[in-house]
């Protein structure tokens, strides 16, 4: 019996973002269909993985997360190199030392670290501040300057600090992460504000502030699906690639942190924790996530293996 394959006729596509410099650029976005529906449209770039590097030793990471980075946890340059060895497509440097609760490091100190990391690896760099909005604006201004021309992805820019960060990105040739809390209208609004400052739309990545598996993953999932549908139907202010900070959320989950003996009915911690991070990422990949910021090297390996398979054609 003849079955007519149902194909949607989308009119537009996700914008394509280029990170890094030749010959080591990485591209994301550009899809003209829903995730992995090769039978319907083009998927020119695969979703990518990033591994986090901190500029100070994390205190609250569980042992299974620290183990793969033994000996480099207090050396961001060595840690970043290790991430590249582990197969991360890009390195995500988190400038936690800037946080007033930690070292309250100065913008110049942070910029020096960022520069050292950028010079040590040949993959593109994501640089994230400490999450305190005012401080991030100050820090990223200096970081942006120090990394001039390296075409990094910097953030997170929020409604409160986007002006400084956008200006830095424009002057020094970077792209920015625009963060808004789990609301598609706020995401769109922030993208409009940023583009009104004349930063090109394909230099913005949307961060919808995702939740992990079991902790509100469905909210970000639906926002991503709606954003992708919007993008395909021609809404340029929702057509940005989506970045998902999966590691920071997944490793907060009790199911990832609880050791083997605490909840024996949950199975072994290592396998459970890594699956928690991997499934959070691969579920967002189905909704339209493009950049997955992860923490465990095993997760990078598994997410990449899955994406390799999903990038194989399923055209009829």
């Amino acid at each position: 019996m003849a079955v007519t394959i149902a194909k949607e006729k989308w009119t537009s596509k996700v914008s394509e973002m280029v990170l890094g410099t030749e010959p080591n650029t990485v591209k994301v976005g550009g899809e003209s269909t829903l995730p992995f529906l090769h039978f319907e449209g083009e998927i020119p770039n695969r979703p990518i993985t990033a591994l986090e590097v901190w500029d100070l030793e994390p205190t609250d990471w569980p042992d299974i997360l620290k183990k793969p980075f033994e000996g480099v946890l207090n050396d961001p340059v060595a840690w970043a190199k290790k991430n590249v060895e582990y197969g991360a497509d890009v390195v995500a440097l988190r400038l936690m030392s800037a946080h007033p609760d930690y070292k309250n490091a100065t913008p110049d100190e942070c910029a020096a670290t960022a520069k050292a990391v950028a010079d040590a690896v040949n993959v593109p760099l994501i640089v994230i501040g400490c999450g305190v909005e005012d401080k991030d604006a100050e820090v990223l201004e200096k970081v942006g300057e120090a990394l001039n021309g390296k075409n990094c992805l910097i953030g997170c820019a929020t409604e409160k600090n986007y002006k400084t960060i956008t200006a830095t990105a424009m002057v020094n040739g970077h792209s920015i992460i625009a963060s808004s809390p789990l609301d598609i209208n706020l995401a769109k609004q922030l993208n409009i504000l940023v583009t009104e400052m004349n930063l090109a739309a394909n230099r913005i990545a949307i961060d919808p502030l995702v939740g992990a598996l079991g902790y509100g993953i469905e909210y970000a999932y639906s926002i991503m699906e709606r954003a992708r549908l919007g993008a395909l139907m021609g809404d340029k202010m929702l057509a940005m690639p989506v970045i998902c900070f999966v590691g920071q959320e997944a490793w907060k989950a009790k199911e990832a942190k609880s050791p083997d003996d605490e909840n024996p009915e949950w199975g072994a911690q290592e396998r459970r924790a890594i699956l928690w991070e991997v499934i959070t990422a691969t579920t967002f990949a189905q909704a339209g996530g493009s950049i997955f910021v992860l923490r465990h090297p095993e997760s990078v390996k598994e997410v990449k293996k899955h994406i390799d398979k999903m990038m194989e054609s399923n055209a009829y």
Binding site: Y221, E255, W266, G267, A268
Partner: peptide, 17 residues
């Protein structure tokens, strides 16, 4: 293996909310 099934049961709960 419960370590395999727990994430899937949780995902199902979330997606079908």
């Amino acid at each position: 293996n419960p370590a395999d099934i727990l994430p899937l049961i949780t995902l199902r709960l979330n997606i079908y909310t």
